[in-house]
Each structure stands twice: as structure tokens, then as C-alpha cells.
Nucleic acid binder design. Structure first.
Lengths: 207, 207
DNA sequence: CTCCAATCTTGTCATCGGATAGATTGGAGG
DNA sequence: CCTCCAATCTATCCGATGACAAGATTGGAG
């Protein structure tokens, strides 16, 4: 992919309008910010959020090793941008499924697996600046879907909070275990189908 | 703590007998292997599994920067030792609670929180050598408890696998979310009590 | 008491993240 | 069309790191 940030339907996700358009030159890259983020996503896919260097990303993008610093400041800045973008795509996907709590859970797992590099950064607060505004707004948007959709399934009044945490934990845990390869089924079945069955087991009581 | 590897009851967990006993000297540290692992646990607690350097651990232990290499080879070797030790303490704790499935889940969460540095390494396979024998045996021991205890609660025949994965995911997800600070309740209530309530919500159906 | 092997130190090298100073270029305003 | 400013990127430098190699030290088996 030359331009990432696709939502789960495959529609191109357009970033906010750039303040300045720079044409491609021998000197000016043209869209280095996006190129570095894409390179980071690729590198994270290959070897995790710590298995690469900023200089390596710069080499992949064909620029000097100091170029990324202009756009992101430092390594944490780059990962903050990755996390923010991840939470936006995540929130979009969740909102699209918000009607059905079961589907919200499945979407959670599907996002983690199909957008693995985002997910591997998003829930690791020591890697980036969690209090960054761009991160916070998107994360709150995602959290809102989880709270409202799971709350509707609550078995009794005052149980909303517990139901939300249970559903969230179940989806998050399944995703984490799958990604880490801890589940023995990893090689065999389809994760989405398996996740749906597992979540149904939790919500089956209240349906 | 000067010597770690306590189990959850607080009993001192003795390592396997050292092949050689080295007395403390100006030159010889005496028990550098343990000192480095303890320093690593401390450092991981303070700044995650990537926020420190081998040289820093060596400085904390008062030895030269190349000393750790003799015991662990490289960084992955050290983290392999941490993961192996973590899975042993983990398996011990789970086995002690194996009678009650609910308690197994609570123990899972309690371990993650009270032995955070171990947990943060154990489920991150890119950090260490997951196929190391010392890791594999302890991990299989832990997995065995999860499978047998959750299987007993299965709502129907053939549902054992699903029940196991659900319980495992729930506990693992709750722990992960708590540790990452994603749960809004993080500052307020007691995680163990909250975890027990959440797990009861899942297993309530089958009781 | 000797001597070997485990343990630890010193020195070296390529690489990294971050900072600074300077070169290049796009395009807004005249 | 031209000027000039600001955004973008390059060139250097610095201290720190992981890994490796070679040598110093020491404990304890025999």
C-alpha cells in the first residue's frame, strides 16, 4: 500500500487537508509525513513496535535520517501519530457497528487483527503521549460506543458498568491472546468466527 | 527486594541449585544472574520492557557493561529468563487455585497486577525466545490449569474449548486493560474485587 | 598447591536518537 | 514575473547502546 489509512470497508480515508501542498522534487519528498507513518506501520507489522529504528524508516522513505524529526519531533511523536490515526480508524469501525453489541465486539477483534500495527501501539501508553489531544478525542469516541452498546445489554439496572467492562475485556483479551499467538487454535480456525462464538457465550445470558 | 521470585503467598521461591557457588569478591559479584534479573524487573516496572538498557542494569548491579552477556547472551536472552521465571510463578499460583474456576480467573488478574513486570514480558513473543524449553514447560503448566478448570464449567458437551477461551480472554483482557490504564475505573476501585464481579458475570450462567 | 573453567573487565565497532546549523524549494504577495 | 519568507529536508556532531573479542581474575576440584 502506498497510502494507508483505509477503513474496514476499504474506502480511502482522507486525512485532513494539508496546510501546504508540496510537489515531489529531488529535494522535497512531497508527502513525507504519510510515507514515514506507512513505513512505521509496515515495520511494526514485521517486527513489533520496538524492532526498528527511525533511521531505518527514513532510509525506506529515501530521505535523510533527520528528516522525520521535522514532522514528528521524536520517536514518541511518531508513535503518537500512529496511535491517533489508529484510534480514528478504530472509532469509525466501532460506530458503524454500534447498533449491535455483539457486532461491536466482533468489530473490536477484527480491527485488532486486520489493523495489527495500530492496535499494537494504541494500548501501550509508555510508547507514546497518551494525553495528546488528537489521541484523546478519537479514543473517547471509541470508548463511547463500547459504553452505550454494552450498557443496553445489561442484565439489571446498575450493572451497566460491569457489562461494559466484561464485554470490553473479553474482546480485548481475545484479540491480545490471538495476536500474541497464545491461543493454541491460532493456526486452525478463523479468528472472527471464533470470536463471535466466544462473545455470544458472554452475551447469551442477557439476550 | 534483594532476591525476587516470591510466589503469591510470599514464600521464597528457591531457584534450582547453582552449579557453582561464588563468594562475593571485589571482582566476582557472587550472584550476578539474579541481580541482573531483579534489576530488569525493577526497570520494567519503572518504564516498561523497552525503557532501559542492558548497560543501565549492569550499572545498577555494580558490574561492567559486558558482564550480563556472560549469563544471558543478549537482550533477548535476559528477557527469556524473565519470561521463564514469570511463567513458573504464574503456573504455581494458578495450580494453587485450580479447584475453583472463578478463583483461577481472579488469580490470573492478581498475578498480572502484582507481578506486572513479568506479565508485561510473558505475552510479548517478539521480546524473547518463546520456544525456549524453560519457557515452554512452565507455560504449558499454566495453560493446563486454564483448560481443565474452565472446562468443568462448560454449559454443554463440546463447549469446553469455547468456555476456556472465553474465561481466558476475559481475565487476560481485564488485566491488559487495567495495566494499560484504559479502564476509567483504574484510580477508583480495587481491581481484584472488580475482576471477581466481572468474571462472575461470565460464569454466572453455568453455575 | 596447581590448574582449569567460570566469571568479570577493558576495549572496540557499527548504529541509534536527538540536537544544531545550514541548504533547498514552494508559493503567497507584490 | 519576481522577491522573500517559511516549510522542508540535508549535513554534522554528540553521547549512549548492543554485541563482540581478548584478556584479567578467582574459586574450587583434584
Amino acid at each position: 500500500m502506498s497510502t494507508s489509512r483505509y477503513d474496514e470497508g476499504g474506502t480511502l480515508y482522507r486525512g485532513k487537508a494539508e496546510v501546504r501542498q508540496i510537489k515531489r522534487t529531488a529535494y522535497h519528498h512531497g508527502n513525507l509525513r504519510r510515507a514515514i507513518i506507512d513505513a512505521a506501520l509496515q515495520a511494526i507489522t514485521e517486527s513489533g513496535p520496538a524492532g526498528w529504528s527511525l533511521r531505518e524508516l527514513a532510509r525506506r522513505a529515501g530521505v535523510s535520517h533527520a528528516a522525520p524529526a521535522h514532522h514528528f519531533g521524536d520517536r514518541a511523536g511518531l508513535l503518537t501519530a500512529v496511535a491517533a490515526e489508529g484510534f480514528e480508524v478504530f472509532a469509525d469501525a466501532l460506530e458503524r457497528a454500534a447498533d449491535d453489541a455483539l457486532e461491536v465486539g466482533v468489530t473490536y477483534v477484527r480491527f485488532a487483527i486486520s489493523h495489527r500495527p495500530y492496535f499494537e501501539v494504541m494500548f501501550r501508553p509508555e510508547l507514546y503521549r497518551v494525553d495528546d489531544p488528537s489521541v484523546e478525542t478519537a479514543r473517547e469516541r471509541a470508548a463511547h460506543v463500547l459504553v452505550t452498546s454494552a450498557g443496553r445489554l445489561s442484565p439489571g439496572p446498575g450493572q451497566d458498568r460491569l457489562t461494559t467492562i466484561a464485554g470490553w475485556s473479553l474482546a480485548h483479551g481475545f484479540a491480545g491472546l490471538w495476536l500474541s499467538g497464545a491461543l493454541p487454535e491460532t493456526a486452525h480456525s478463523d479468528p472472527e468466527t471464533l470470536a463471535r462464538s466466544v462473545i455470544r457465550l458472554l452475551f447469551g445470558t442477557t439476550h
